[in-house]
Design a protein around this nucleic acid. Structure first.
Length: 412
DNA sequence: CCTATCGGACC
DNA sequence: GGTCCGATAGG
């Protein structure tokens, strides 16, 4: 549910860019009242989670234009590794005093109104996510607090503690994929944290951490200088400035070549044990391309779009489309087989063969203008799926209605 | 190509 | 406030 909520925030903020200095708790209610259209969507999405997640992905792409979180990161091993490392980073950071009484900034609500996020990220009031970036402040004396436009664009979060691992990772991507490319300070301090179980050693140099892992964990005492790259697997970088954890997570995603991290020059190892395994997967998918293109002779109804793609109830003329027993009396004129509503190409009528001369036929009859005004067809006055079924039964709508197209079930 | 979504014009 | 065109994205 938080996803839905958040996606709505994303959408609304990106589109309208209104400054909200509201409490994060009150936001959901605010969304529902202020934006009724979106509120309907909220209701919809609350019914189906998967769609909301997909929608979230989409919204995120809209908002953040060019940062792509590569789906390649989702290989099975790496997901596990991400979880593990993220959890370790989290725990190690949480031991440090992160919510250490942040000063209540006077213009906290007003500061980030322009798409940068309403709440100041260093404030502890917002959510657990902000606490991730909080310890960077205390560890970096140079910039105690980001002065203005604390870049992370995520003004409101549900106050619930993030408890799901996958959701958390996803949300953190959401949180940070926008601000990451924006602010890069030079005064970052990169640390390297050992990810070995129960270790958590943090060193300041990559060589140091590698050596530590080699000697301590991998047990390579003799050739302590030789590195086959396996150590890389066991440590991560921690940026000790503003967005430490984001970088930590980012560095964990092995596909991303650590864009601006001051990556230590120790990674040219051709070790293929970790990242390349997922990428080098070549699935042999033998598919004949003639799957569905075979044009059989009889197409009954061929509208210019296939919006009527098998609704749950095909012809509702008399039958049972009342889910709850409430009686509707819709006026259904004709079965949709003939379908002459739209003045498109007249070739629908001829069942005769040789459809190849259609461009000869519809020279004049087809809808002309194309360059001028829209020339819509007269809108149907009858009840549409939306009215008949209502928003709550949206999955009973015809496909066209679901897609905001001309209704195919209750044609006028 | 197709399916699906959505902004926004139109009523 | 509903309908639905047109643009658009992803497969």
């Amino acid at each position: 549910m938080t996803f839905t909520f958040q996606s709505e925030d994303l959408k609304r903020d990106s589109s309208k860019k209104i400054s909200h200095h509201l409490f994060p708790l009150a936001m959901e209610e605010d969304v529902k009242t202020a934006d009724t259209k979106k509120a309907h969507r909220v209701l919809d999405h609350e019914k189906e989670n998967t769609r909301s997640i997909c929608l979230l992905e989409q919204k995120r792409k809209v908002v953040s234009s060019n940062i792509d979180v590569p789906p390649a990161r989702k290989s099975s091993e790496e997901v596990d590794m991400d979880k593990v490392t993220a959890a370790m980073v989290l725990t190690s950071l949480s031991t440090s005093p992160l919510v250490r009484s942040p000063p209540v900034r006077p213009n906290e609500g007003l500061s980030g109104s322009w798409k940068e996020g309403g709440c100041a990220p260093s404030s502890s009031s917002s959510s657990g996510y902000w606490s991730w970036s909080a310890p960077s402040d205390q560890s970096n004396p140079s910039t105690p607090s980001p002065p203005l436009s604390a870049d992370s664009f995520k003004p409101f979060r549900s106050p619930a503690q993030p408890d799901d691992g996958i959701d958390e990772a996803e949300a953190s991507n959401l949180l940070f994929d926008e601000p990451i490319p924006r602010k890069r300070k030079n005064s970052m301090k990169v640390m390297f944290k050992c990810l070995w179980k129960n270790c958590g050693k943090v060193l300041s140099t990559a060589a140091g951490i590698q050596k530590h892992i080699r000697t301590v964990h991998l047990g390579r005492v003799g050739d302590s200088d030789y590195s086959d790259g396996e150590e890389d697997f066991y440590y991560t970088e921690i940026k000790l400035n503003t967005d430490s954890v984001a970088d930590g997570l980012c560095s964990l995603a092995p596909a991303s070549p650590s864009q601006s991290l001051a990556s230590p020059p120790t990674f040219p190892i051709p070790d293929s044990s970790r990242t390349e395994t997922s990428c080098a997967k070549t699935d042999t998918k033998l598919m004949t391309p003639l799957s569905r293109s075979a044009p059989t002779t009889l197409y009954l109804v061929h509208t210019d779009h296939a919006y009527q793609a098998t609704p749950p109830v095909t012809i509702p003329g008399s039958a049972k489309f009342t889910p709850n027993g409430s009686s509707f009396s819709i006026s259904w004129q004709s079965p949709p087989v003939t379908f002459t509503g739209i003045p498109v190409s007249p070739t629908h009528h001829h069942p005769a063969g040789t459809g190849e001369q259609r461009q000869h036929t519809h020279t004049i009859l087809s809808s002309p203008p194309r360059g001028t005004v829209s020339l819509r067809k007269p809108r149907g006055e009858g009840k549409k799926c939306r009215k008949v079924y209502g928003m709550e039964n949206r999955d009973m709508w015809c496909t066209a209605c679901r897609w905001k197209k001309a209704c195919q079930r209750f044609i006028d």
